[in-house]
Design a protein around this nucleic acid. Structure first.
Lengths: 233, 233
DNA sequence: TAGATTGTTAATCGATTAACAATC
DNA sequence: TAGATTGTTAATCGATTAACAATC
């Protein structure tokens, strides 16, 4: 009986892993590991121990080992982690090799800024096009990305297997466009519209960016900092 | 003896609050409360209970009451919260009325995009200027914000009581500019350079933005989602 | 083999939720 | 007063850290 329980335990764990039910705290840390390992790789470093990485990243070595072990034993006792191997594994976890396609909706300042970066390519995401209502922009290219009319969005998404829609439109149109995207089979939305976008279906993943929140946090910290310094009255 | 302990307890708590040592989990939620309350205010709503707000924000009512009480009793039993009052209080906490001044360093695409928004004004932060090396931009205005040469940055900061530097420069120059800012008395940095900026001093607050991390998280979730749907083999 | 460092379990810490007495 | 809802304490839950046996 005991051995069956043991087996079941193991099974449960593996099942869990396969299902990807990893705590969101861990998931949010993965991109950071990815960045640091990428840098180390570029520096030509071959191996690293959790202790060394812990110093670099200013987190505990324990946390690093715990985090990585949610996905499998990527290290080797007595040696540490092979940087190239670990980087590859984390890249895979993060979907870099899934060949995701993205479109940017809204060719305003922010849309342009995003189009100008290598943010997408660098993470294995292909920018297929930008969409806008402004007829002056349609037909042009912005940093190599063609601009199409927003009316052609649903068709384009269906035909080109678009996975991700990047929303840099005014908040008034965000919800409608999201529905359109969902109906056209797009399953991920990266939302820069200044509002909390809710997913129209549990199938669709919505990632909201709130830059303003970060600015406010900075101000809060600035304020508490100066408060602290005030001489005790 | 017991009563002294009790008093001490109370004192400790108040001291804690005054010092602003509130858990960072709570602090990160403040801007979100601020946004929702702002919307409610605009909608002309006067009062709200934690239960109602909880439904709106999709968090527990318990958490809302717990969070708000880190800063004081903003509500009233049997009534709920006065929206205008609560909004004002949270605004104050977040430093909206501190009159912070900001400069944007780097007048590239992202710098322009930030200059185009009302992100700063809306949060009580004044944009005093932008700085760049490009002589073609110097002297111009971008969405009403004058562009200066980067060499004049330290002087400008000292003379104009600049609190926040927004970094939209290539990552190579980020660390140097941060040191310059610190020496010129700027105590907050909002860093969009694609790297982990470390504060040169515990006095200086650095807020790092990593848009790419958010994109990766989206991809991870997209990937796990499709995995889940695969028929069990 | 001895030394190093992981993978993993157990202990600790902190954050969230539930419950309810205080009070408007 | 009775009803509603907060402020706050206690219980639960989850995440982080510490410790160490497994193993390269």
């Amino acid at each position: 009986m005991e051995s069956i329980d043991k087996l079941k335990g193991t099974f449960d764990k593996k099942y869990h892993e396969a299902k990807g039910t990893v705590s969101s705290a861990v998931i949010k840390r993965l991109p950071r590991y990815h960045r640091y390992l990428g840098d180390l790789l570029r520096d030509g470093k071959l191996r690293i121990s959790s202790a060394e990485l812990s110093e670099l990243m200013e987190v505990t070595a324990s946390q690093i080992r715990q985090d990585l072990n949610c996905f499998g034993g990527f290290g080797q006792q007595g040696y540490g982690y092979n940087i190239r191997y670990l980087y590859t594994k984390i890249s895979e976890l993060l979907g870099v090799s899934e060949g995701y396609n993205a479109v940017i909706i809204g060719a305003g300042n922010l849309g342009k800024a995003l189009a100008a970066t290598h943010m997408f390519e660098r993470r294995g995401v292909t920018r297929l096009g930008m969409f806008d209502i402004n007829p002056e922009l349609v037909g042009k290219k912005i940093y190599g990305t063609p601009v199409y009319h927003i009316d052609t969005l649903p068709d384009f998404c269906k035909r080109n297997n678009v996975h991700i829609g990047v929303l840099t439109v005014p908040k008034e149109s965000a919800a409608n466009i999201t529905d359109t995207l969902y109906e056209a089979g797009v399953m991920g939305v990266w939302n820069f519209a200044n509002m909390e976008l809710r997913s129209p279906s549990p199938d669709m993943i919505v990632e909201n960016i709130h830059l303003g929140d970060s600015l406010m946090t900075l101000c809060y910290k600035l304020k508490s900092r100066s408060k602290e310094e005030k001489p005790r009255e």
